[in-house]
Amino acid sequence: MRINGATTVLELEPRVSLLDALRDELGLTGTKKGCDQGACGACTVLVDGERINSCLALAVQYSGREITTVEGVDHPLQAAFVANDGLQCGYCTPGQICSAIGMLAEHAAGAPSAVTEHLCEPDPELTDAEIRERMSGNLCRCGAYNGIVDSVREVAVAEQLR
């Protein structure tokens, strides 16, 4: 597996999830466990640039893939989260950030969402409603949603200007 740019060799039982491998075997505890059921998004990591829930991923299935965890992220979203107070306790934050990075890439690739009005539009505008729907797989019990949406919008706009 390549994790945050470095090749890592792990011998694991097949039942070990990618999440547990990261946290327990590799000490990469930035990726969080909130439910272990695919119901909260705290464990979101990027696999070859796509966001997934690492709790429902058996590590053995991801042999040879490029995994990015929050520890490997260096992205304007991080500063935006601090500036917009897109976090409180911080437990869902790494998952929100990884998810938002994956989401921006999906949007840039023209992927629609459940709230996209015209499905065939190749380049749907990233409205607040779009951001909220696309980020709905990441729960935040502290309720920092407004700040998260502000952060994502800010970074998306800056990326478009660049």
Partner: peptide, 23 residues
Amino acid sequence: IRSRYPVLSRALLSGASAQLRNV
């Protein structure tokens, strides 16, 4: 799918979360 079977696209997009749909 989006142009010929929008119902399928919409159904998929309404399911689970983006992370789960990616997998």
